[in-house]
Design a protein around this nucleic acid. Structure first.
Length: 453
RNA sequence: GGAGGAGUGGCCGAGUGGUUUAAGGCAGCGGUCUUGAAAACCGCCGAGUGAAUAGCUCCGGGGGUUCGAAUCCCUCCUCCUCCGCCA
């Protein structure tokens, strides 16, 4: 397929980065969103009036240029006209500077506004207002008197999770997987990708490092820069003018394959006939998670580096909610195939991610923690990312381009799945049963043998 | 890492300072003709902003020179060729 790239000047403010018709819905997010919206409207008004004024000046310059081209370059008339136009040129330059400052201001404000929740999303104040959509399976039962262990106890006893050496090599929140933990990770990755490709997803193996522009396209930036690992910038060559330094080679460790895969089609106008597009991708994920100190400090739940298979869809606006349900079902298949007990939550307005219009979380049962924990998050971003990343489609030949809807969901987090397997399939003797679906990927092994005492 | 070359509308491609407010071709859409199709002929045919069939902006991105830049200068990005290095 040829790459269809269209110029979309950086100078043009993304006035429609947030659909103006959805501003009322954005207010459901609560907090000081209302104030931010009002502020943006003022700046945007200023931008429009500056633009109008500047356009008028440019129009007069353009018609003057037409006359200039016909004049004798040595005539007194030419010289007089040129001197007069110098004034106009400097006025235009002034206005351009003012406009571009206002545009930058408007754009920065817009980038900080969250997406509008879909009408079906429940209002809420915090995560306790999320709603249970359904529950699948039942919690494993253990013999009387046996208290199920945490996965880190199970894993360390088996010698397959090495937290101490992970920290020695790389610091806190890095873990070394050994033996069957390593093998199971590989097995899970293949099991998930095989499952999704057989369900019509095209497999993608993306780069792990991404540019600032890509992170901005999927809305991790500019608001959440503190959560992403950034590579040290190479020094610009000596003598480089500051205004000419564009951070296009400013690289980050991708926090999720959603970034790479969604940006596959940034700056493109897709043909309607190719929609919906369904991708699945494995990628290592890196999160700095500033502010998460003290949460889940033990175990594999919250790591700076983890593995995940991601599902991404590009759809028309008309079908995106049906596709969201289908995507969530495809993620659920992974857990069902492994026989892991889980539930599905519909997130309320307060708990949804910044860019999402609607999100379902899959929460797997962890007997060692006696709790459900998030293992997948499936969201419809509607046109929020499409506007930032400029992903459009043409409904019919000759039609104006429209924004696509982008969706993504974990399909699913591999490390947390390993956690769930270790906890749900642990046996009294310390051994762990391998779910049947994974055995073909583990050389037929049925059980990780109990640790030698 | 070093040395060269190149980036123009869906595709190809002209254009080295002012009738380019981007030629021409291909593809696409509409029409004439035809029983139908092909061919031929005629017309339409990039995007963004904007209430707009007005105006303005966009020739990889950004900046500069000039009354005026696709065209000249700087810089970044991307691709290609050769050398080096490497898995």
């Amino acid at each position: 397929m040829g790459l269809t790239r269209r110029a979309w000047s950086r100078h043009v403010p993304k006035a429609n980065m947030l659909d103006p018709n959805r501003m009322d819905d954005v207010l459901r997010r609560g907090g000081d969103v209302g104030k931010a919206v009002e502020q943006w409207k003022l700046v945007d008004q200023k931008r429009k009036s500056l633009q109008g004024e500047l356009d008028g000046l440019r129009a007069s310059r353009n018609s003057a240029n037409e006359r200039m081209s016909k004049l004798d370059k040595k005539s007194a008339e030419f010289v007089a006209a040129r001197d007069e136009l110098k004034l106009l040129a400097s006025k235009i330059k002034e206005d351009e500077a003012a406009l571009s400052a206002t545009e930058a201001d408007a754009e920065q404000q817009l980038l900080m506004l969250p997406n509008a929740p879909h009408s079906s999303v429940p209002d809420g104040k915090n995560e306790h207002d999320n709603q249970v959509l359904h529950v699948w399976g039942t919690a494993p039962t253990f013999p009387d008197g046996f208290v199920p262990k945490n996965h880190w106890d199970v894993g360390e006893a088996l010698g397959i999770l090495d937290f101490e050496r992970g920290a020695k090599i790389s610091g806190a929140r890095f873990t070394v997987l050994k033996g069957w933990a390593s093998r199971l990770t590989r097995a899970l990755m293949n099991y998930m990708l095989d499952l999704h490709t057989s369900n019509g997803y095209q497999e993608v193996w993306p780069p792990a490092l991404v540019r600032r522009a890509s992170l901005r396209g999927t809305a991790q930036l500019p608001k959440f820069e503190a959560d992403v690992f950034r590579l040290a910038m190479p020094e610009p060559p000596p003598g480089t003018a500051p205004e000419s330094i564009v951070p296009d080679n400013d690289l980050f460790l991708s926090p999720t394959a959603e970034v790479q895969v969604t940006n596959l089609h940034s700056d493109e106008i897709l043909d309607a006939s190719v929609l919906p597009i369904k991708y699945c991708a494995y990628a290592p994920c890196f999160r700095a998670e500033a502010g998460a100190y003290g949460k889940d400090t033990r175990g594999l739940i919250r790591q700076h580096q983890f593995d995940k298979v991601e599902l991404v869809k590009f759809t028309t606006p008309e079908t995106s909610y049906a596709e969201l349900d289908a995507l969530r079902t495809d993620a659920e298949r992974v857990l069902q195939g492994l026989g892991l007990h889980y539930r599905v939550m519909t997130l309320c307005t307060a708990d949804m991610g910044f860019g999402s219009s609607k999100t379902y979380d899959l929460e797997v049962w962890l007997p060692g923690q006696n709790a459900f924990r998030e293992i997948s998050s499936c969201s419809n971003y509607e046109d929020f990312q499409a506007r930032r990343a400029k992903i459009r489609y043409r409904p019919n030949a000759g039609d104006k381009p429209r924004m696509v809807h982008t969706l993504n969901g974990s399909g699913i987090a591999i490390g947390r799945t390993l956690v769930a397997v270790l906890e749900q399939y642990q046996q009294v003797d310390g051994s762990v049963i391998i779910p049947p679906a994974l055995r073909p990927y583990c050389g037929g092994l049925e059980r990780i043998p109990a640790p030698a005492v």
